[in-house]
């Protein structure tokens, strides 16, 4: 069964300027109940890899540098 990849606008945005993942921070990735945040191999920063978000906000609340913004997923807005 052949497959295709579709793009999706994700609700969580990480400010690369503020994110200190290169210093070893993984807080947002650790706390996300749906395990959808990841490290971007290229930039070394955290990002939302899967569009499966409960807009619950631990990622934003616990980020030490206020780098994370949780928006409401597009389909719900």
């Amino acid at each position: 069964m052949p497959i295709a990849s579709q793009i999706s606008m994700v609700p969580v945005v990480v400010d690369d300027e503020k994110c200190i993942a290169e210093k070893g921070c993984r807080t947002c990735i650790d706390v996300c109940p749906l395990d959808v945040l990841w490290i971007n191999e290229e930039s070394g920063k955290a990002y939302m890899k899967y569009d499966e978000c409960w807009y619950c906000m631990p990622c934003e609340a616990d980020c030490p540098t206020d780098a994370v913004t949780v928006n409401i997923p597009y389909l719900l807005r």
């Binding site: 109940p33 749906l34 499966e52 978000c53 409960w54 807009y55 619950c56 997923p73 389909l75 719900l76």
Partner: peptide, 13 residues
């Protein structure tokens, strides 16, 4: 109703 699989009432985990 939104069609968003993870937009549930319960924590979707």
């Amino acid at each position: 109703a939104s069609g968003y699989l993870f937009g549930t009432y319960e924590n979707p985990s």
